[in-house]
């Protein structure tokens, strides 16, 4: 069993990470919707969104594990 204060702190941190991820994914999506980019820029945005998507999954996984604590 992990220390309950540590769990609470971790939950707060993950909450903040989710807010940061919202900024990253939200702005990337807005960027992809705005002025037409060239192929390379589109690929870069897609790749960044893919990376952010991975981060979202990792955070969800951690939150799921912490719910059991």
């Amino acid at each position: 069993m992990i220390d309950s204060e540590l769990v609470a702190e971790a939950r707060q941190l993950l909450h903040d990470v989710n807010a940061s991820l919202q900024l990253i994914t939200g702005n990337l999506e807005l960027l992809s919707m705005s002025d037409p980019q060239n192929e390379e820029q589109r690929e870069m945005i897609a790749s960044a969104l893919e990376g952010a998507g991975d981060a979202v999954r990792y955070v969800r996984e951690l939150q799921q594990k912490l719910r059991g604590q």
Binding site: N18, Q22, T25, G26, E29, M33
Partner: peptide, 8 residues
């Protein structure tokens, strides 16, 4: 009731 980050 939704979780951040939320897709556009």
């Amino acid at each position: 009731y939704l979780q951040k980050p939320l897709a556009a």
